[in-house]
Simulated scan of single mutants.
Amino acid sequence: MRSAVARRTALAASAAALALLATACGGDDKADKGGSGEDKGGAAASSAPAAKALTAAELEKAALTQADVKSGKVTEKVSGAEAAAQDKVKADDAACAPIAYVQNGSYVGKPSATVLRKWTGEPKKPAAGASDEEKFLAGMDASSVMVTLASYENGGAEQAMKDLSAAAEKCAGGFSITVAGEKTKVLKVATTDAPKGGDEALAMTVTIQADEGIEASSKGVVVRKGATLAYFPAFNLAAAATGKDFDFPTEIVDAQLTKLG
């Protein structure tokens, strides 16, 4: 029985990782409501003058470190295998590409500078008397978030948010993502309550078709502060294997936005 669970986990994780499902978000109804605009994941327009794009050095200074979080592990040197380059991610409908980029740990548009971090939570402890299968899944039950800070010039941050909002609406019924030659079917995209703390915010949950009839969800949040976008795609391996929901670690969004200023 354990081997069946292990196989199911591996298959679901493989399919979901291709779409770096995490989509997900700060995007479930457990995320802080508000966002500087529309509660339901919509990006709020800003009439403020264009902000100055941060340099690579400024982004590095503003990025999360281990000292900024109360739990989990922050990885400052993230391998390229964990976040797909934008040019390696394709959507069958170009209008849906912004969602595909975010879910795979990339960014929208052409930022002038970026910095990448990864946060990994601590696995849940199995309940007393848990079966072998439950213990196995408990060990996988740790959410991870790719945190990308991207600065944009000439209104690029605002345009990226517009493109994301348009994609979330147009692609709500699903589309396909191809990463490194592997195709993944996105079944639906749902916008959810966006977090507070920025000029605009978008939160969404992306559901993909994993193997053996399993539907796996990822969550993602994107927040704009001035000319900087903070991307937070999140993924939980145990949730991908079982098709169950998972809580988005909103504290990571809060910590990053506080440090971003």
Rank of each mutant, 00 (worst) to 15 (best):
D247C: 04
G41M: 11
K30D: 15
V206E: 14
G35C: 08
K244I: 05
V78D: 10
F246P: 12
A168R: 02
M146P: 02
P249V: 13
L116P: 09
L18K: 12
A4S: 12
V147Q: 03
G26H: 14
A6R: 04
T184F: 08
D245C: 10
C25A: 09
L257D: 12
S151V: 02
I208K: 01
D29K: 08
A230F: 03
G181F: 03
I208S: 15
K125W: 02
S46L: 07
K77P: 00
G35S: 12
S112T: 13
G35T: 11
A43L: 04
V74R: 11
F248K: 04
G197Y: 02
K219D: 11
R2S: 07
Y152R: 06
N104R: 13
A138P: 08
Y231H: 14
L59C: 10
P49D: 07
T178H: 05
E76V: 06
A190H: 06
V221Q: 13
A56F: 02
A50R: 09
I252W: 03
A160C: 01
E58G: 12
T205K: 14
S47H: 12
E158G: 13
A15M: 13
S218P: 15
A6K: 12
A81E: 15
G213V: 03
A31D: 05
A142K: 14
G155D: 04
V222Q: 11
M140S: 07
D87E: 13
W119S: 05
Q86M: 01
A13K: 03
S217V: 00
E158Q: 05
E153K: 12
I177Y: 05
K124S: 02
A138Y: 08
V5N: 05
A43D: 02
P98S: 02
Y101G: 07
A56E: 09
A4E: 11
T120G: 05
A94L: 05
A172I: 00
E122M: 00
G156E: 05
T75Y: 11
L11F: 03
E251Y: 11
K219F: 00
T114A: 11
K30R: 14
A19D: 14
A48F: 09
A201K: 01
L164H: 05
A31P: 01
K244G: 08
E58T: 01
V5A: 11
A128E: 14
K73P: 03
K183C: 03
A62L: 13
F175L: 00
D39C: 07
V221S: 09
A12V: 04
A239F: 06
V253S: 12
A167S: 03
V253C: 07
A203T: 00
S165L: 00
A255L: 03
E133Y: 06
N236P: 15
P98N: 01
C96S: 08
M161D: 08
D68S: 02
